[in-house]
Design a binder for these strands. Structure first.
Lengths: 337, 337
DNA sequence: TTGTAGGCGTTATCAG
DNA sequence: CTGATAACGCCTACAA
């Protein structure tokens, strides 16, 4: 079913059908109705591929996600959902590309084949091959996260440095004198994953500012790792009374390790972190945390991308969010163990 | 950058470039090299849209997911990830369509505009508009889940009826005489969501077979709902000693409610369910559950779809999985409360 | 071994 | 107000 068939059955030319549909030139009411009747009868819809070829744009954006094999955190999932949602609101479709490091088939197809009008890249590294490749193709793109040359691209990011710093200040205000940072995994750190590095920097800064003792640990992104990591922390540092963390996925295990050590939260031990609101609220007890506004992040990213697509010459724009800490039930005055 | 430009710079015709790329007819080594050099220099890649128009296929599959605004369960997320992964392995891209009930813009664009060669639809209802629409467009599709006329389409599904039945039998074997089913939400049930209905059927059947007392409750898909739901269950039925559930997202809250009632798992109370392996393992304590093989489901769905795309006349095929229950740490002999 | 030409389904320009 | 036609970039049958 194509436009020619509709034209034939309506007894008009293809261009008239096209114009009747687009309204870009006047069509007599009579023929318009006749055409519409045929269209309704046959259930015709223009072929998006042909339209894309003709118009030179696909009305699709690419979303580059971490390879599916790895497990997504609640936060990452929130980003994906919010991007898809925001794109749908702008009548844009989303093409997924699960691409990790180097030259990836999927990434090349989407980016090199110009299957999309622009790209949103998740989980950006401080040095990122994908960003380099995108720059080279001159395809508009926006990062969720930023490289170490942050001013040379458009991005939306969370200010992990400030966020973790705020957590430390909050805990220090409550009298905690020895605080641990439970960071993301050592692999991520080694790979130059920005949030992990910036959280570390914020932690170092804040502990220094407040003159409290800081301990740091990397921890894989799952509950069991959180359990063993905090178990070790508790054993090694008897004076530890609080944890700050950006490792959302490990938190349930951390809770469990604390409980396992005979400690209660927030009576004996405090935790403050960075996590999606939904996630933080649904933990037991609900986590005092800087609530990551995933929906806002995704919406901003789409908005920025749309702007770059419509005018590639527009200067780069960056959005750094640092949501306030929501007090819930995991932080309280320090009490020596 | 298009094939004509490459041809011009290589001093050959466009077809020669095309053939040099596809290898569908011999090209002299000399010209092939010359062409390749130009291609490398300019970083040329064929335009996927033009190729799709010419070939009449997009090498893309659509994945219809629940609207993003709702929260995904770990299991749903696993499906998405596995579909994307399996598609990538087959060099297929995935276009997302967050479409709920009726005629949805995104769904119409993807399906009506023939942006994809086939579609995988998640979260199918017993009566499903999207399935009806897909049938009408004659676009190949595969369901993750099935309608009430299951033989008329291709699908991959979990045998919730058998799974819940197995849970009940397992609990009955351990001596439990009053068992509750914590189902998905009442809305889902009312909307004709298959898994909820089939779990209910399996529960009814198994409790009857074993002559145990069954109680049923619907529960929203989140931790807090699980908490209040189980709280009520425990209060209303003092003789209740075990729960079977398919409501993954509510489980942490259920644990909490049990603990809150002064009960220990599995000493005083047992839980068995259906959940993703990763999820079940990471709970505290790890959940005895039928481990949903999300990756397998997604891979099967993609495989089925590819088959339907390459031969739309092939008979429908259905895959019903019922993974065995993995014994972990949440079920034990019944002990009266 | 290589080149020419037509067509995939649209939209838009140019005529009428 | 409407129709013929070119063009988007690619592939491939046909010709040489």
């Amino acid at each position: 079913m194509n436009i020619g068939e509709i034209a034939k059955r309506s007894g008009v030319s293809r261009s008239t059908v096209s114009y009747a549909l687009s309204g870009k030139r006047p069509v007599s009411e009579a023929t318009r109705r006749r055409i519409q009747a045929v269209i309704d009868e046959l259930g015709y819809q223009p072929n998006a591929t042909a339209k894309a070829l003709k118009e030179g744009r696909t009305r699709t954006i690419g979303l580059v996600i971490p390879p599916a094999s790895r497990h997504f955190t609640d936060m990452q999932l929130g980003f994906v959902a919010s991007v898809v949602d925001a794109a749908a609101r702008a009548d844009l479709d989303v093409l997924l590309s699960p691409s990790g490091g180097e030259h990836d088939r999927s990434f090349e197809r989407v980016v090199g084949g110009r299957r999309v009008d622009g790209v949103i890249v998740m989980e950006i590294r401080l040095e990122d091959d994908r960003v380099a490749r995108l720059r080279q193709t001159r395809l508009p793109f926006v990062g969720i996260g930023r490289t170490d040359r942050a001013d040379e691209m458009s991005w939306v990011d969370l200010d992990y440095e400030t966020l973790i710093s705020q957590c430390v200040h909050h805990l220090a205000d409550l009298g905690h004198r020895r605080i641990a940072l439970v960071n993301r995994s050592a692999e991520l750190m080694a790979a130059g994953y920005g949030p992990a590095h910036r959280a570390q920097a914020g932690f170092n800064r804040a502990t220094a500012e407040r003159g409290v003792e800081g301990v740091q640990m990397c921890c894989a992104d799952d509950s069991r790792a959180g359990f063993s990591c905090v178990g070790r922390l508790l054993a090694d540092h008897p004076d530890l009374t609080a944890i700050a963390t950006i490792n959302e996925a490990a938190i349930p295990g951390m809770y469990h390790a604390i409980e396992n050590a005979g400690l209660t939260v927030p009576g004996d031990f405090s935790i403050a972190g960075v996590a999606g609101r939904h996630w933080a609220e649904n933990l037991h007890p609900p986590l005092t945390a800087a609530d990551v506004p995933a929906d806002e992040l995704g919406a901003h990213a789409v908005e920025l991308l749309i702007r770059r697509i419509s005018d590639p010459a527009t200067p780069h724009h960056q959005i750094l969010l640092s949501p306030p800490i929501s007090l819930r039930r995991t932080t309280g005055p320090a009490r020596t163990r």
